[in-house]
Nucleic acid binder design. Structure first.
Lengths: 290, 290
DNA sequence: AAAACTCTGAAAATATCTTGACACAAACCA
DNA sequence: TGGTTTGTGTCAAGATATTTTCAGAGTTTT
């Protein structure tokens, strides 16, 4: 266990175990905006974290600071110690561990990948893709390789809520024909394919393209051979210090695309979500309402 | 208006020319203790600088901040920019498009989430978790909810290459019993559970814990109720400008964990990968060698 | 050297913040 | 299901903080 006087950030992170739901919401906000969140008034913090002011005060008290001013004072002191040192350390997580720790190396790589990936995206292409996926006349299919299929799965799970007519295609040869029968010209196939491009996937894309489907490809910087058949293509950076490639950048792309589609189809989507909510409610599927 | 908003420190240093004697004394104190001096109350600052409180207020007003609170707010904002790592702020890709474009908003949110998530991880806990997952004596099971199951799937897909004895558990009530029979004391269950915590998942965790399994939980900042049974817990930030939560930070956690496990078991893993490679080769599964 | 002006701090007025009391709602338990 | 506990927000009182007012000290001007 850590020493007695650890920094406030850790203290809060640790105490989160024993907190109530609203308090966690507050604590989470504080940690995400640490330490600036604690420099303002109770009221400001409460509003920003979307809780009531007594909740803020109570948390400060529970944590053993006399009250909010006490907590604030502690933060200021900690900040003073941190700011006095000449070079304000830019990498916060790097402080705690050597640069050689896997966490830091991985984090650096991932952040770099994301920056590079996002910087390369053509906004017009992105918007056009979102519109294609939002078009209610088209059905949407998604597929991927051994590694990327879970992303396609994730995509369809969410898209099925956003709009009707969304299916996951597993790239297993004998499962295609029926699915392929369903595909009409104008339908959209979203394909994830990163290196060690699999024959299965390429074949599936080819068949879909033959049937007149619009193919959207999410691949790596070396570009899958399926690109030949793709209307739109996005390349994500995937290299990390590991024997495998990282799919994080793909994931970000997918989530961003879904957010864009969702905002295009908001009216329809909102009503679908509401209905789904009702179904879950009746099935007591989740822990509690809220 | 002062469109050219330089930093406050310089602003004060420059204005010192035009100040009165007492004001200079105050300004000098502020500069010597910048920025901490400006985080407290007027009274504290006045006392510390040995001037009166009206002097403090007057200075703040003269400098063109509405009053002391205005100055304080400005300092906090400046501080925020300084304390948040530059990576979190959009630099390059933001130029190409308006800030309101989904791509930028999402990118900002995701990078912020990653930073906050990684900053909160306890390295000792991370290392201990990796060791648990690398222990060949223990079998590994992974599961997740409706949204997070693809991540568990992704995890098992990779882990199966890294080591033997890895299984995905789908949280469907009638599919548990056989899998549960397999579980022995000391086995490890990796659970993904983010909000709208599902009853299924909680039940599965409870059963596993009863059987003596070590539970590792990857959840959100509000913490799944399954935490009660977890040996180790990691909280990932998940909020993005969308109707859904983002699983990107979870994904990063998983990939990082796998990289750590892989480096612990490298010898075994390398030979397994080699054998797998041979199998793929014979099945002509991939496009071409490389 | 007196008058006018400027600067400063004491003190009061005003605004804002913090925190306790309470009531309602949700979760838990029997 | 009904009773009990726990958690959360509203409100308002009390505490602090900020700002204005004003008088006197110091400085400059004539």
């Amino acid at each position: 266990m850590a020493a007695v006087t650890q920094n406030i950030e850790d203290q809060i992170a640790q105490a989160i175990e024993t907190m109530t739901r609203t308090e966690r919401q507050l604590a989470s906000y504080i940690l995400r905006h640490y330490p600036v969140a604690l420099l303002g008034s109770v009221t400001q913090l409460a509003k920003a974290a979307e809780v009531s002011s007594p909740t803020v005060v109570r948390l400060a008290q529970k944590m053993g600071f006399g009250g909010y001013p006490g907590l604030q004072q502690a933060v200021r002191e900690e900040l003073e110690a941190r700011l006095v040192s000449p070079l304000a350390k830019h990498d916060r997580w790097a402080e705690a561990a050597p640069d050689t720790h896997m966490l830091n190396r991985f984090a650096d790589a991932v952040l770099g990948n994301l920056q590079a990936t996002l910087a390369q995206i053509d906004h017009a292409q992105f918007d056009a893709t979102a519109e294609l996926l939002a078009d209610p006349e088209r059905r949407i299919f998604a597929t991927g390789g051994r590694i990327t299929l879970p992303i396609a799965d994730y995509f369809t799970t969410h898209m099925k809520v956003i709009r009707p007519g969304v299916e996951l295609l597993e790239p297993v040869s004998n499962a295609w024909p029926p699915a392929m029968l369903e595909m009409r010209a104008g339908d959209v196939l979203l394909v994830f394919d990163i290196r060690r491009y699999e024959n299965n996937v390429l074949q599936l894309v080819e068949m879909a393209a033959d049937q007149g489907a619009e193919v959207i490809l999410i691949t790596d910087p070396w570009v899958s051979p399926a690109a030949r058949h793709a209307r739109y293509r996005f390349s994500a950076q995937i290299e990390v210090p590991s024997a495998w490639d990282s799919t994080v950048a793909l994931q970000v792309l997918v989530e961003t695309l879904m957010a864009a589609v969702q905002s295009l189809t908001w009216e329809e989507t909102a009503s679908r979500m509401k209905r789904l909510e009702g179904l879950y409610e009746r099935a007591r599927f989740f822990q509690r309402g809220k």
